[in-house]
Amino acid sequence: MDLFGIPAPLLFGQVLLGLINGAFYALLSLGLAVIFGMLNVINFTHGAQFMMGAFVAWMLLEWLGIGYWGALLLAPLIVGATGIIMERLMIARLYKLDHLYGLLLTFGLGLIIEGLFRNEFGSSGLPYRIPVELQGAWDLDFMFMPVYRGWVVLVAFVMCLATWLVIEKTKIGSYLRAATENPALVQAFGINVPRMMTLTYGAGVALAAFAGVLAAPIYSVNPQMGSNLIIIVFAVVVIGGMGSILGSVLTGFGLGIIEGLTKVFYPEASSTVIFVVMALVLLARPAALLGRS
């Protein structure tokens, strides 16, 4: 059976691959959306923090002998801690100013971090292997489906769901949402709003680092690995509605699929299609899919 001149199984395979890439977009845009939603800062350091996650995984393995599973837990904590320091020292000073200041600061910090890693580790990258437990592939007849990619989709999905539940359904989540609406009032109730914002930033950064560890075995672990993704992920957040968690997650997966199909029908445009979608969505619905107007 053919669909649009492409054998149907091949097309399904491509949709599946798109979904896997979408999982990365969703996971990264999730952190970006959490940070923007709570702090009103467009965190352009996110790509560098994703890269740091992958590098910390490599360092843990090479220097301390801690493997993939340990890194999955430790790398987000370590990188999250650097995020907390950054927030306290620099980003916290910009909350009262226009978004642009936060964007410029985080963009600059991202470039600096990338440069430091490039100076230390070079640009061509470091090897990181798929953990033994997740090696191998399922033969789906029309294609090989690596076990590791299935794992990525599963973990990303669970992570997105958990983050959404924490923010929408728990008491801490309700504090966070309230603090976004009216920080002064929440502070008046005796809740330490600045600390909450610091921890939120740390958590958003930890999510980026978590995605970085997931990416390390399949992408080249190099200093510019995050800058390739950050622009796409930013577009995902814009389409999903700035700060909307559900919007980012759904858009992440959806755009992964759209990009995947573009890679079959017109590969030359596969890096542009996301921005075409972004332009169309913004024209039709300036508040984006699930955004607050």
Partner: peptide, 16 residues
């Protein structure tokens, strides 16, 4: 022909 330098995932092309 894939877009340079914005491509990091090659799985789709490998399957093709």
């Amino acid at each position: 022909r894939y877009p340079f330098p914005a491509t990091t995932d090659f799985s789709s092309f490998l399957v093709q």
